[in-house]
Write a protein that binds this DNA or RNA. Structure first.
Length: 422
RNA sequence: GUGGGUGUAGCUCAGUUGGCAGAGCACCAGGUUGUGGUCCUGGGUGUCGGGGGUUCAAGUCCCCUCACUCACCCCA
């Protein structure tokens, strides 16, 4: 037992070698977003509690029982973000980014927090990348976001994803559907919690996984049969454009998402090897959200992708490139004077762009050489008293075992030349 | 919040009807006073999750507790 302290319950954390996979995924996303013209946003991890209550929706589980809410010393009620979209929109509105060219295209990343019981792929502190296009109603923008996520996953080597697609309608047609669905659901044999949900948020009942509930839902009315003309046209266009990009999808009229703000296009990426938490990422359109939080009418679409689940999927598909940091040159000093010289040499190599490391703590040659082998270096630079006296160092090719003496003054250039030739 | 499973070395895990805490990998040291990755030799690095109980004796049996984990719920 190294310490009596443990991480708080239910959090995910990454340390070597898995942390390399996490970083690779996040870096890949940054590149993909940047390539598509999305700018980076660094946001606070907490916001006013009311923002999430209004934005995410008072009736959602996220708001009613999963938020990390606390009071600061000034008596303000603050909440650790349970998701990104609402905070992104708040920031865009606050700083007037929507006053310029539309859509505003931004992305963000970091931890989010929900107080839930942890299980595979679900943690109290979890990590997302988030991307939003705010200020456009064009279905092409919907598809741009989907394609970006899809290509991101594919670039990581994931091949077993499925894309589920639905439309939840708009302010015009959703209430009509909602009423029809409610009427249907009220006639079913359901437990008390679910009956309550029928009244508060009937769409979510469609998502129930319990077989006894599922069986009763077979003849439930579907959103897609109740879309108004505009929503239907939008939805059809999204599907046409997806087909143009050769992105396969599954029409899933039962796909509803847990956050109240979604309108029209909603989608989810599922991975079959993740266990119960198979949703690896999801998003959709939120054309009324800006007004919900007191802003101007401003449509938007975006997604959040779970980095924890992305890492799990990469591991499950065995595409997690777990690479320990490796260097090109490793310094092996023998004695104090040599350590000082090698220390300077390694710093100089790094400054000139060569990845380099060295042995510390006065290790004996054998131990230091072991370090050289583990470091993955192509060359070891060995310096002892005899070498210092001769004004040179031993440069050993660790793959072939060949070793030559190189004058100290020529070390950096010689090493750079040799590395360039490889 | 509700169920099930599991807690023994850094990791993966053995440990019989209760009888001196183990293996593999990893790590460290030596074989080699200045040469790694192979090989040989040696080293256990431990609050058996914690507390209480039964017993001559508890990793093992009983009670409580904590943690982890999977699932429900919910979602990333």
């Amino acid at each position: 037992m190294s310490s009596n302290f443990q991480a708080p319950r239910g959090v995910s954390e990454y340390f070597p070698p898995r942390s390399a996979t996490f970083l690779a995924a996040r870096d890949a996303f940054a590149a993909a977003a940047t390539r598509a013209g999305y700018a980076y946003l660094e946001l606070p991890v907490f916001e006013e509690t009311r923002l999430f209550a209004r934005g995410v929706g008072e009736s959602t589980d996220v708001v009613t029982k999963e938020m990390y809410t606390f009071e600061d010393r000034g008596g303000r009620s603050l909440t650790l973000r349970p998701e990104f979209t609402v905070g992104v929109l708040r920031s865009v509105l606050q700083h007037g980014l929507n006053k310029g060219e539309l859509p505003v295209k931004v992305w963000a990343t970091g931890p989010a927090f929900r107080y839930e019981r942890a299980q595979k792929g679900r943690y109290r502190q979890f990590y997302q990348v988030d991307l939003e296009a705010i200020g456009s109603e064009d279905p092409a923008v919907d598809v741009e976001t989907i394609a970006l996520a899809w290509d991101f996953y594919r670039d990581l080597g994931l091949t077993r994803l499925s894309l589920h697609l639905n439309s939840l309608g708009c302010r015009e047609c959703r209430p009509v559907y909602r009423a029809a669905l409610q009427e249907f659901l009220r006639r079913l044999d359901l437990d008390e919690d679910t009956r309550k949900r029928v009244e508060i948020n009937p769409l979510r009942v469609l998502d129930d996984k319990r077989p006894e509930v599922r069986a009763q839902l077979e003849d439930a009315p579907l959103v897609t049969d109740h879309l108004c003309g505009a929503c239907k046209a939008h939805h059809d266009r999204v599907r046409e454009l997806l087909a143009d990009l050769s992105i396969p999808w599954i029409d899933d009229p039962r796909l509803v998402r847990g956050l109240d703000y979604y309108t029209r296009t909603t989608y989810e990426f599922d991975h079959p090897l993740l266990g119960a938490q198979s949703g690896i990422g999801g998003g959709g359109r939120y054309d009324g959200l800006s007004e919900d939080i007191g802003g101007p009418p401003l449509p938007g679409i975006g997604f959040g992708l779970g980095l924890d689940r992305t890492v799990l999927a990469m591991e499950a598909e065995e595409v997690a490139a777990v690479t320990a940091p490796t260097v090109d040159v490793y310094g092996v000093p023998l004695g104090e004077e040599a350590e000082r010289k090698i220390f300077g040499l390694i710093a100089e190599l790094r400054r000139s762009g060569v990845a380099a490391d060295m042995s510390y703590d006065g290790k004996k040659l054998k131990g230091a050489m072991r370090g050289a082998g583990r470091s993955g270096a192509a060359y070891a630079v060995i310096l002892g008293e005899r070498d210092i006296a001769a004004g040179s160092a031993q440069v050993k090719d660790l793959a072939s075992g060949d070793q030559v003496a190189v004058p100290l003054a020529e070390l950096v250039t010689t090493l750079k030349e040799r590395l360039a030739e490889r």
